[in-house]
Design a protein around this nucleic acid. Sequence first.
RNA 1: GAACCCGUAGUCUAAUGGUAGAACACCUCGUUUACACCGAGGAUACCCAAGUUCGAUUCUUGGCGGGUUCACCA
Length: 802
Amino acid sequence: MEKLSNKKKGYDPKEIEEKYRKYWEEQKIYKFNPDSKKKIYSIDTPPPYASAGHLHVGHGLSYTQFEIIARIMRLMGREVYFPPGFDDNGLPTEKYVEEKLGISKSKTNRAEFRKICLEESKKVEKIYVENVFKKLGHSYDWDLLYTTISPEAQRVSQESFIKLVKKGDCYRGEEPTIWCSFHETALAQAEVEDLERTTKLNYIDFDVASNSKENKKLTIATTRPEFLPACVGIFVSPEDERYKDWIGKELIVPLFNHKVKIMEDKKVDKDFGTGIVMICTFGDSTDIEWWKEYKLDLKSVLNLDGTFNSLGGKYEGLKVEEAKKEILKDLDKEGRLKKQESLNQTVGSCWRCSTPVEYIVTKQWFIKTLDYKEDLIKRGNEIKWYPEFMKARFENWTKNLKWNWTISRQRYYGVPIPAWYCESCNEIIIAKESEIPIDPLEAEKNCPSCGKIATPDSDVFDTWMTSSNSPEVASRWLENPELYKKISPMSLRPQSHDIIRTWAFYTILKSHLLFNRIPWKDITINTFVLDSSGKGMSKSKGNAIWVDDLIDKYGVDAFRYWVSSATLGKDLPFNEKELIAGKRFLTKLWNVSNFIFMNLEDYNYKKPKKLEKIDEYMLQTLAYNTNKIKSLYLNYNISGARELIDNLFWNIFANDYLEIIKRRIYNETGDKKASAQYVLHQSLLTILKIMSPITCFITEEIYQTYFKKIEGDKSIHISKWPEFKKELIEQTKELQGKGNLFREVLSKVRQEKTNAKKSMNSEIILTLSKEDLEMLEEMKEDFASVTNSKEIKEGKFKVEFI
RNA sequence: GAACCCGUAGUCUAAUGGUAGAACACCUCGUUUACACCGAGGAUACCCAAGUUCGAUUCUUGGCGGGUUCACCA
């Protein structure tokens, strides 16, 4: 009879993990079969940025969380489409390459730079695959691997662009754009983060243009005096008595001497500063609103790198901050700087480099979002959100959108924008669908109107342009339309809450615009791991705990056990102690299995004609709980399911049932023994299966050691979920009553023994009430055996020691 | 400023309109045929206030505290 290995040492995960990693890969256990008759369950996997070789527990948890779901669905009989992916496209990769190799994009040509990025990505991806995903036992179908910079992904991205341009939802415009002067690129609203800082509010005197009034000066408070050359208007509140007579008059902008008109607008807060606002193109986003509303002049003073252009006069060439200093100095010299106040402000900044963003008018490509707010919210409602309340984040964001989505980026490493422009007739030429993927820099086009050579677009797409089509990339939209049709819309998008406004939003948008439907049926928002003091974990903060270290110390299954205790959408402070519980579980399961196998040596795999009562009770309880666990699993409630499994396995099965049948198995023969053996066999197999999505290694090892030859499945992970007959699942009141009473009275007896400081198998004479005795009549032998009662009498409950 | 989430034993977490179930830690006792990485048992908890209710930790409102997201000012 086989024994589990390492009996003396207890459970040693290392060897077992190694063994099955190899086995699963060789046997292609997780291979997707497109011809399967089973219902498909498809996952729109989050492709990680391939820009670091480690994974901290936060990422480890979230990736494992939905990996468990993949395993659950496989067990439920679904054909699971679970493709791994890498996001190796765009700014994060560029930044990584620039930092790691000390190269700047401005000093390298695009082709060269792209080549380096691609090579670096491949290296990091390899580390990820081997050291992270495979190590953690993740059950991807590796044949389905995709990357967002691959020609296929580029094709999807460009195709979606072409379709949307044709549809009129994507346009090129010259508009104020959110701009990062460090990265020298346009940004989307979603890429802007708050930056709190202290700044100075400067009170500056403006002269009045005509001398008709006795008052010759007005004082204006501004945080951005450097924008004086771009000043195009002055606003006051219509409710402000102080300036009533000033409306319509003109002021002379200090240092630059151009005239600007004073106008009124309700949005002006008369209590801020002096109650006068100067509008510049563009100091902030409200400037843009007023500029648009009142059709003011455009005076662009900034170059794309954040320096002043010729409009800045003597300040030309200076950076914004330097210009500000100089201008303030000069204002002070002229006696115009009346006072300066300290002010706390929050400015938008680039999420990658924290440089405060500027607003610069440039030619960019946009996808319409503002026209579709309501439609998108409707789409959001068609999707099932886990947890439900996370939908509010999506709705909030969608409702409050102020900008169309800027999709062009003045960067190198990304999907090229497949467009050319004719300088002489302003024609825009878009690539044909048959040509993509294409890089316009490497393909010459002539203008269809005038025949001249058109200028290629040198920009690339925002990375979300590709990521928002992850369902299409992952399911081979253009490559394999038949497959795509089969698995779309996808079943699940698992992701984290911080990118609801980007990834979830853009994906829903794209799906709505391109296909007029939702991209997936369910979305799960994974648990967000904090450090033990409740702070977000990151490499830069230095509080990250790495998955490698943990699995070295505790093993993958213990880590996965910890993952299974997390609730979707909630924060979870990391506590290393929690992994001890996982380790404990593994040891227990290991020992229980050893015990059972020892006692199944003479088992003939046949169900005896009649089961003992307590065995039947165990079987019912098993069936009932398994069924409950199934519905929890199907609702992605992994922690709920795990709790039930723990109770079923540890308390009911190991601590009670095993103790109850122990002596019967040792001493009896025939059906009495076989009855227990049958239930042991069923119970262990069931427990292994329902636990296999979580602790995938140990359950496989135990399955392979004993059950495989009987059950026949190559792996527990492609076996079938244990289904029970209806009468077992529904339980019978009578048997449950009796079995529960059995366990209650047993507990009472144990308590008496504890109170008397006796060991659990000390011999006793037991007295039970008449009702209890009648109830337990059919299970009397087992009861006497587990309590080690030499005699059971009728009367008032009493435990006598011999 | 707004929206959303959360506030349960020392720590972390679960369920629930009838005062709470685990885990880790703690205390007591126990170990001759799976397991001391164990077994039996014990102590310890629903942020505050008002309301709805026969009854609230659970529902409503307000407050306090923590978190996330969004908006913010010239």
